[in-house]
Design a protein around this nucleic acid. Structure first.
Lengths: 165, 165
DNA sequence: TTAAAGTGGACAAATGACATCCATAATAGA
DNA sequence: TCTATTATGGATGTCATTTGTCCACTTTAA
């Protein structure tokens, strides 16, 4: 009943992009340096966000990724489902139906359990879709306007200052 | 974001025990035959239910397992947490705090995300603890009283009739 | 005392998560 | 047009967790 680490990484990526100057894509290699995860793996994470329509990718020189929509239009459900797939926590093997197949009510029993967990899924869906990226930015920055930086340049600076030569 | 198959198996086990004549333990090998899973693995599943105090085990001849308490006192949360451990879906690696450590608000950002997922855990905890074993039995059997059988004998009968010799 | 049953730990196999690499396609700029 | 840059997607490898097995041990009824 654990989410994968990809969810936390995805959130980091989106925070980065939300504080990025508009219209300037951030290269995935820049992001991988900030997050200290391998570029090759990070690309897979980002692909899921692209496929889900949360971010857009721009191939080619000076390319990278940008938010595909306003933070107010991105919900936590988008992020979780992008990384984890559809919200369906119960691995329904029809076990109850099989085990009690010689009794009445076997199918009925299976359906009852199925409904219990569909209800649980629904609880999470409603909760997560009530939380938007804008909510979180507001909580983080309060009355301040969300800052906008160019993470590409910031990373280059850090590289320069980090070089010993 | 999937539960393990153990949850479905645990539910089957509890349904079996709830329809078992009081005070007669059911042998785990009998249950493993019904569920068509290996006896050795089923024992692990059941151990978790024993540790959590949902079922009681009786060692020795004519031993087995019985419900440790009334179905009305067993919640779906008990079952899920017995099998999956504490309800904490977010694998908190402190990634946001690390990535934005050179900015203000890094710790604040991490805390915001932490709270989001604690809220999700809480949603599930409240939902699952509102559903008891009694609720499910009522749904399954309606006005009928829950039947009480001796699954040990039933299995023996089936074995006899199943033998070709 | 013996047979039947649960306990607990070591171990092995299968599955899914995490990670790397490379050939390819698309784009900006010279 | 050519080149450097960057995303795409598939093949592959590694590692952790889940699933499953085995066995020596303890407990209990008869």
């Amino acid at each position: 009943m654990k989410l994968t680490n990809g969810v936390e990484q995805a959130i980091c990526i989106l925070v980065l992009l939300a504080t990025q100057e508009k219209q300037i894509p951030v290269a995935t290699d820049v992001i991988s340096k900030k997050l200290e995860v391998s570029p090759s793996y990070l690309k897979k994470i980002m692909r899921k966000l692209v496929v889900r329509g949360i971010i857009k990718s721009v191939p080619g020189s000076k390319g990278g990724v940008t938010l595909a929509k306003d933070p107010a239009a991105i919900t936590m459900l988008d992020i979780v489902e992008a990384m984890e797939g559809e919200m369906k926590m119960f691995p329904d093997n029809g076990l109850i139906e099989k085990v009690f197949s010689d009794r009445d009510n076997a199918g009925r029993g299976q359906e009852i359990i199925r409904n219990v967990f569909q209800g649980a899924d629904q609880q999470l869906i409603e909760y997560f879709s009530s939380i938007t990226g804008e909510d979180l930015l507001k909580q983080g920055f309060g009355d301040m306007e969300t800052p906008h930086l160019n993470w590409n340049e910031l990373t280059e600076d850090e590289e320069k200052s980090g070089e010993t030569k």
